[in-house]
Simulated scan of single mutants.
Amino acid sequence: MTALWPDFDNGLLKFINHLGTFQWDIFWGYTTNIVAWIPLYLFFIYLVVKNFSRQKTLAIITTLLFTLVFTLLFTEMIKELVQRSRPLNDPGLQEELRVVIRAYGYSFFSGHASNSMAVTTLFVLFLRKKQKWVYILYLWPLFFGASRLYFAVHYPTDVFVGWLAGFLIALVFYRYLGHTLLDYAAYREAVPDRK
C-alpha cells in the first residue's frame, strides 16, 4: 500500500536520532527493552489487587489480556497492510542515521507505542477514582515510544499513531468489555452462591 508520509517525518527523526551519545544510548537501550519494564507491570497488578476485590481484579485482568491481544494483532495487521519500511532500512535515509540497534519487520505503526498506551490507559481508567496520581503512569508509553525514535527504528508518525491507536483501543475495551465484566463481578459479589 502506497502512502504519502508527512514531510516533517524524516527531519524530526534525524533531529531526535542525532541527539544521541554513547552515554544516552545505555539509558535509552534500557528504556526500549520490554523486559526492563517488568517491575512496572507488577506494580500495575499490585495496584489492582490492592484496590479491588478478587472478582473485580479478575475482571480487570481479563479485560487487559483481551485488549493486549487485540492491540498486538491489530498492530501487526496494519503493519502488513501498510508495509512501511523502517527508517534504518530506507536506503535514502539510513546513511544519515546513527545506527545503534537493528529492528526488523515493518514500521507503521509502532507496537511499542500502541501496546504500552493501551495497557496504561486501561490501568488509568480502572484506577483513576481510587488513585488520583495514577495519570503519572502515562510517562511509561511516552518514554517507551520516544526510545523508538531515539534509535530510529520508527518514524515519528509511527509512534504518534501507535499512541493514538492504543489509547482508542483501550477506551473501547474499557467501555464495552471492562464495564460488562465489572458489573458481572459486582453482581457475583452481591448475590451469595446458591448450592
Results as ranks from 00 to 15, higher is better:
A3F: 15
A3M: 09
A3I: 15
L4V: 11
W5P: 00
P6Q: 01
D7Q: 14
F8H: 05
D9C: 00
N10R: 11
G11I: 02
G11R: 01
K14Q: 10
F15S: 07
N17H: 03
L19W: 10
G20H: 06
G20D: 06
F22G: 02
W24C: 05
I26M: 05
W28E: 05
G29P: 03
Y30M: 09
Y30L: 13
T31D: 02
T31H: 05
T31A: 09
T31M: 05
T31R: 01
W37T: 03
W37G: 10
I38Y: 13
P39H: 03
L42M: 07
L42F: 01
F43P: 00
F43K: 03
I45P: 00
Y46L: 11
Y46H: 11
L47H: 08
V48E: 08
V49F: 10
K50G: 04
N51W: 03
N51Q: 09
N51G: 06
F52M: 07
Q55V: 02
Q55G: 08
K56S: 13
L58E: 07
L58F: 14
A59Q: 00
I60V: 09
I60A: 06
I61L: 13
T62H: 13
T63A: 03
L65M: 12
F66D: 07
T67S: 12
T71A: 10
L72C: 10
L72A: 12
F74D: 10
F74T: 04
F74V: 12
F74G: 04
E76G: 15
I78Y: 01
K79N: 01
K79F: 03
K79W: 08
E80Q: 13
V82G: 03
S85P: 12
S85Q: 15
P91I: 13
G92I: 04
L93V: 14
E95Y: 12
E95G: 14
E95H: 14
E96R: 12
V99A: 12
V99Y: 08
I101T: 13
I101Y: 07
I101N: 01
G105L: 04
G105D: 05
Y106A: 03
F108V: 08
S110G: 01
A113S: 14
A113W: 02
S114W: 07
N115R: 13
S116G: 14
M117K: 00
M117S: 08
A118T: 11
F123L: 05
V124W: 10
L125V: 00
L125C: 05
F126A: 04
L127A: 08
R128C: 12
K129W: 07
Q131A: 09
K132F: 13
K132E: 15
L137D: 10
L139A: 15
L139Q: 03
P141A: 11
L142G: 07
L142P: 05
F143H: 11
A146M: 15
A146G: 13
R148E: 00
Y150K: 09
Y150T: 07
V153W: 00
H154L: 07
H154N: 04
Y155W: 12
T157H: 02
V159K: 01
V159R: 04
V159D: 00
V161P: 06
G162S: 00
L164P: 00
A165L: 09
G166T: 06
L168R: 01
L168V: 08
I169M: 08
A170C: 04
L171I: 02
L171T: 05
Y174S: 12
R175G: 02
T180E: 14
T180N: 10
Y184Q: 15
A185R: 00
E189F: 03
V191R: 06
P192S: 09
R194K: 08
K195A: 13
K195D: 07
K195F: 14
